[in-house]
Structure formats: C-alpha cells, structure tokens
Design a binder for these strands. Structure first.
Lengths: 231, 231
DNA sequence: ATCTTGAAAATGTGATCACAATTTTGTGAT
DNA sequence: ATCACAAAATTGTGATCACATTTTCAAGAT
C-alpha cells in the first residue's frame, strides 16, 4: 500500500553475456525470494529502473515475466506488488507443492545415476555446513537446489516451472521459518530421500519429499508465528 | 524451423477498455490454443506486429508473458516458437494434470453451492449441444470452462494458473483429438463429476476428474495418431 | 480536526529510433 | 550442382519521447 518505505535490493552480479532484461529479472527474482520487498509495497517501473540504473524498458519486461510466474501481482490500479499472504493461501500453496513435488520425484527417480546421487550428497553436506554456520539464506537456497537436482534428472520433466512458481510465491513468507531454524529439531528428510533413491523405493521417496516439505513449512502451524508473519 | 510458411491468426475482438498489450496477448494465446501456429515455426516480433497492425512493443511484452506461461519457448538463437512435442513430454503433461486437477477439485468441492452447480450443468448441456453440432473448438473451450468453474469455487485456490499453463502446452496438440472426437465412445465423466459433487463424495469426484482427463487425451495411446500429430 | 477539491507530479502505455548481433542472400570458386 | 564466404537485410535489445490516465497533496470549506 504505502510507497515511501524505502526498499533495498541487492543487485546481482552483472554478466556481460546476459541481456539487461535478464539481469533485472534475476535481481528482482532474488529480491522476492529473499523477502527484500515487503508484500503490499507498491513498486513502480521508474523507481526500480533508477534504483538499478537502467532504463524503464527492461524493468517493464522483467515485471511482466515475474507477474506471469506468480512472484508479483499487477493490481488493477496500475500498481505492482508482492502479493499479500493469508493463512488459507499459505496452506493451499504448501498442499500444491505436495501434489506436485512427490510426483516429480517419482518420475525422476529412474533417471538418477551415480553422478547425480553424488551431487545430491554434496548439496546435502553443504546444507549441514550452512546450518552449522547459521546461514539461513544459504540453507534455503541449497534446499531448493537439492529438490531441483532430483526433479531435473527426468529429461522429459515438465513440472519444474510450476514448482518454481510455487516456491516464488511462498518464499517471501519463509523468512520467519528460516530465521528460527534452530528452534526446530529437524529430522533429516534428505537422508531419507537419498536412502530411498539408493533402494529405488518410490513410495519411500515420495514420503520423504512430502515430509521434507511439511517440515520446512511446519512453523505455519504455530499460529502466533504465522500471524506475525502476515503482519 | 522454417520461416516462410504463412501463418493466419484470427484477431480477437479489440475492446477499447483493454490495453493493446493485453489484446495482443489474448490474440496470440487463442492462436496457440487453436493450434494456428505450427510448432517449430519461427516467430519474429516485427512479423507479428505488422500482422496485427501494432508496434513491436506490445508484441514483445505479450511474447515474454506467453513464454513464462509455457505457451511459447524462447530459443537461444533469438527465435520464438511453439515448443515441439514428444510422446514422453505429452505423457508427462497429462500426468501433471492428473497430479494437480483432482487435487484442485477436492479442495474446491466444499465451496460449490447450488448456483455454481447449476452453472456446471448448464456448461455440460452446452458441451452436448456442441458435440451434436460437431463444433470441436466449442467442445474444448467449454470443457476447459467446466473444469475452471469447479476449481475457482475455492476462494483460496492457487493452482489454476499452473493448470492453465499445462492446458496451454497441451492444447496445440489436442486438435487431432478434438477432430476425431466422434470416433471414441465417450462415457460422460462430467455427469459422474456432477453426481459426486451432489453427494459430496470427494473420492468419486477425484476419480471422475482423472477419468475425464484420461479420456480427453486417450488418443495419445493410439500410437499412429500421436505420430501423425508430432509430425 | 475532517472532508472536499483541483492543480501538479508521477505513472503505465505504446511508438519510434539507434545499434550490435544474427540471419539470410547473392556471388564466385570448385 | 555444391559449397564457401562476404555483403545486405533482418532481428532483438534497450533508450527516449509523447500522451492520456492516475495518483498525490496542499489549500480551502465545513
């Protein structure tokens, strides 16, 4: 709603091989994922453009793409915002993840070879390190990479864009979860998933993925937290 | 691949209350849904712009949005195309629908009131009429509307955009199915769905929706058809 | 204080232009 | 005929500009 609360977005590394539009897109996407843009805060093309030192044009295109992906919402009255969240919507998003991700994992399992399995183990070790270091941002980023690495094993895979859309919509509201990571005793669902892949046990993998998603969003069941989260 | 095959897209009704970008988007979306753009046919911004009598700008934005929705694909080499289809990908898309849509129907069922139920019956009658008239385009359009009307009953619903993305990706390859509609004896899955809603029987509704999806894509199991379809 | 109102500032939209990169085409050699 | 290659045409990108619409906000009325 308000416009005057200043926002700070960390500008992504600018790679010359990439178009400006792509760079703007990456930067804004990351800002949404990191929760740097308060939900409801009105964004204007020109504000973002000057903030990032580019012309309004690439910002326009990036905003449209992010809106199509559900990361942003174009309000009727010519305003672009990170959509507000409600408890019901949060649940629906989590349940949509559970409808899609175990299915994606099942379809990917036969394609996971030794190389990819090793890659998964490596990512999981990275998560452990990040948890030990208390680096919440790295944890969520690596966690996503863990899931992505499973799903993309399937060469005919079509669900990842849908799944990433759900991640984008949830991410701004996962900060609280990540910040209070240590409060929760986390059963290592990734270990369960890796074991299931080794055994080629589809049901076990689906269950591990579902449990991992539920654990990651468990704080939503603590009402006082969710309330604080939704402002 | 080729560029010279001429394409004809039916221009949507231009409503003055709507931006040009939106109109271009609607027109192109419809063209994709109706299979008017051959997969692999290279599209250029300027070509479409002059085809539709607008400047390149709104076309650019519409193309980006459609790409984000999976309807189009931006090739690395600066070409935009309707993505090519493979048998495997087709199956994955259908299975993704089955992962999402019964779930969406389940979550919507408690919200379907008498008004909406009447609306559903009305749409179903329209489908019968269109089938009798042999109007394949109307059948697919009304069929989508039937599903949409169920899912949108849920006010907290978040999956419709994902589902519509899957429809967009499948649609260009459903023409064959629609054209040979009469070859298949169709059990009326919509009647089953309506009965399930009346009885508030979740499992029956989920099964009816899944069966409806499978029936609609059944031709994919006739290999010679799918082959013809995929060129 | 609160609401109304109107002028000024800001905004999204869409057209046009310049430019570098890519694709296409035409020419000549084999 | 087929291929190689350079010239020409075409393309996406991004900046700038004009304009109608909307938002903002201060001055005046209640």
């Amino acid at each position: 709603m308000d416009k005057h609360s200043p926002i700070t977005i960390t500008l992504a590394q600018r790679d010359d091989a990439v178009t400006i539009t792509q760079w703007v897109y990456n930067t804004l996407r990351q800002a949404v994922l990191l929760g740097q843009i308060p939900p409801g805060r009105a964004l204007t093309i020109r504000e973002l453009a000057s903030l990032m030192g580019v012309s309004p044009m690439p910002v326009r295109e990036a905003l449209r793409q992010l809106s199509a992906e559900g990361a942003l919402e174009i309000l009727g009255n010519r305003r672009v915002v990170v959509p507000e969240m409600t408890a019901m919507k949060f649940n629906e998003l989590v349940e949509a993840r559970i409808a899609l991700e175990p299915h994606a994992a099942l379809k990917a399992m036969p394609y996971i070879d030794a190389t990819r399995l090793a890659e998964l183990r490596n990512i999981d070790r990275g998560i452990d390190r990040a948890e030990a270091a208390g680096d919440a941002e790295a944890v969520t980023s690596l966690n996503q990479q863990f899931h992505r690495t499973i799903y993309t094993a399937n060469p005919h895979q079509v669900t990842l864009p849908l799944i990433e859309s759900l991640w984008l919509q949830l991410a701004p509201f996962m900060r609280v979860s990540a910040e209070s990571l240590e409060e929760y005793y986390q059963i290592d669902r990734h270990q369960e998933a890796l074991a299931a892949i080794e055994k080629q046990d589809p049901m076990a993998l689906a269950l591990a993925i579902e449990a991992d998603i539920r654990d990651g969003c468990a704080f939503a069941k603590a009402p006082e937290k969710l309330k604080r989260l939704l402002g």
